[in-house]
């Protein structure tokens, strides 16, 4: 999911950086005192998740967990993922500094969309809520794979081929991410429901 340095052309990098900067600005603006610690903890979770590699299929893929982070942070998913990506680039050489913008955008936009799609559904009947959480984790990785494919469109030329390889390679991750998100949401609903969006006691 992390695009390396030297793969993309300048226009893609620059537009990615602008979009990520916009998202980060909105995310920081909505960051209140209560949320700061949550952003920090979820950002570290994202930072670590990328180290858990799933060696299924042709490529080397890792957990993403962006769906869970998006569901719990809303717009603040942008600064959380940006911070984690900076540190991943510096410590593990995942992605790169020039691709920070586009990588942040690719990984933060899908969970934000899922946040708006699923936040209301979380508090329906129990099974609907869990299914919504699973879909949130699943779709976030799926849409991120599509966005990475779209970013590579000027380099790899054949969008459908690249996107389908990406989706196929990341399919196990989508399922695992979905299950983890479902478990986490189920657990948080029991112990600390006010952490989740749309909670009305």
């Amino acid at each position: 999911m992390h695009i390396s340095e030297g793969v993309l052309s300048a226009p893609v990098l620059i537009s990615g950086a602008i979009l990520a900067a916009g998202g980060t600005a909105i995310g920081l603006k909505q960051l209140d005192y209560e949320k700061i610690a949550r952003v920090g903890i979820l950002s570290s979770a994202f930072f670590i998740a990328a180290l858990i590699h799933v060696n299924i299929g042709p490529s080397s893929v890792h957990l993403v967990l962006n769906g869970l982070i998006g569901l719990m942070l809303g717009w603040s998913v942008f600064p959380a993922i940006l911070t984690a990506l900076v540190l991943q680039a510096l410590f593990f050489q995942f992605g790169g500094i020039t691709t920070l913008g586009i990588n942040t955008f690719n990984l933060a936009l899908p969970p934000l969309l899922c946040y708006f799609m699923f936040r209301k559904l979380l508090w329906r009947r129990k099974h609907v809520g869990l299914a919504a959480a699973f879909l949130c984790g699943f779709l976030s990785v799926f849409l991120s794979a599509i966005l990475v494919g779209a970013s590579l469109i000027f380099t790899e030329k054949n969008f459908w081929e690249t996107a389908s390889i990406l989706v196929a390679a990341n399919f196990p991750v989508m399922v695992i991410d979905g299950i983890i998100t479902g478990f986490c949401v189920g657990f948080i609903q029991k112990v600390h429901p006010s952490l989740l969006p749309g909670y009305n006691p």
Partner: peptide, 26 residues
Amino acid sequence: GPDMTQIFGGIGYIFGLAGVAAYVHS
């Protein structure tokens, strides 16, 4: 693969940043 120092270093950085943000806020 990744080093333990790098992993905990990274988590430390993130917590530190959250701390700085909380400090500025307070």
